[in-house]
Design a binder for these strands. Sequence first.
DNA 1: CATTTTCTTTAGTGGTCACTACAAAATCCT
DNA 2: AGGATTTTGTAGTGACCACTAAAGAAAATG
Lengths: 202, 202
Amino acid sequence: MTTKENAKSAPRPRGRPRAFDMETALDTGQRLFHASSYEAVGLAALTDALGVKPPSFYKAFGSKSEFFEQVIERYAQAALALDEILLPGRAPVDALAELLESAARTYARDPQRRGCLVLEAARGPDGDDSATHARRVANQRRDRIREFVARTHPERASAVTDFMASTMSGLSASAREGMDESRLLDVARTAVAGLKAQLGMD
Amino acid sequence: MTTKENAKSAPRPRGRPRAFDMETALDTGQRLFHASSYEAVGLAALTDALGVKPPSFYKAFGSKSEFFEQVIERYAQAALALDEILLPGRAPVDALAELLESAARTYARDPQRRGCLVLEAARGPDGDDSATHARRVANQRRDRIREFVARTHPERASAVTDFMASTMSGLSASAREGMDESRLLDVARTAVAGLKAQLGMD
DNA sequence: CATTTTCTTTAGTGGTCACTACAAAATCCT
DNA sequence: AGGATTTTGTAGTGACCACTAAAGAAAATG
């Protein structure tokens, strides 16, 4: 309480102020990576798009893969919010059906950024940092599905989660290859029919 | 009939004979690409594994992407032969169930070469030659599935084929992320339950 | 034998990759 | 004003990428 301090504004740091907004940069990076892929977006293209020279980028984010880590964490938080779909008490079949259909719609929505940024990045080279981060984020979301299903169907939770994970990967891949929204929705609905066989028809 | 000619052996060509076997090279290349990916196997690693220097490789195959084109054509011919599964007269649900379960087994069989070489390559950069070739080969196989289904269910053929394509991509992706054979088989069987809803229970 | 043809070898090519050493510029603190 | 601190722009780094020019070596042909 010695000097003025507001809840929001951080006290101005000491040295030269950063000349660009990191959130905007993450957003631009997300668009770039989603449009093609982590590997396909070189540092030159990235820094050009951000309007930032490489040394500034590295001061701010550490490395390309650390930048990407922040990007996918942001993306996973924003896209397909599980909280709004996996509501406690809701019938799993209904919730998972909505999740698959939402995925179908989301993956085809923007023709320039098809599929799921996380799931596509998870297919990168096995030892790569970007793929490792993406798989970690994907697995966190799968854990939430498993926990949700386990509340009502503890015995089927793992099998159902595997099926959801595989189906979402398939939807993302198909979206990337150009399958449009209505076809993806048909795929999702056929998958839901499979889910009903696992979880009961309700 | 002027000189000796056998049905099998081509008459020795004129210049210095090739010092390696192209079929063996394609086979080795297939293993390498399948173990990691087209992009991850550099020309140096490739030619080292083949025991062949770059200029010989280029004389024989033209380019890395042309070599890969031959590799995936070979692979598509050998793995998961559709002729043996999509038998005319067979109930589509049965045939497609066998196809999905065979895929699950095949994709997990060799822990060092998980998933489908073609489907994984089909996810490469959009403009890339390797991805273009892989998608062409994948679509040829999807056409055969569509034709097979259309014989008995012409109205559902496209939707069923989309679901098969998406599910196979999902199985391949899951295999790549480490899902073992029994889990992949469970996923395949759940997908078959979805197929039955589309094609009738039989 | 010499010539022609084809492949193999040696030794590179330019291009792109992620990343950085260094010094100038912009801010805060005393 | 005079440091102290942090970010900036300039200008590169070495490593790897797919690929190749040039010359030597191995075969068939004449």
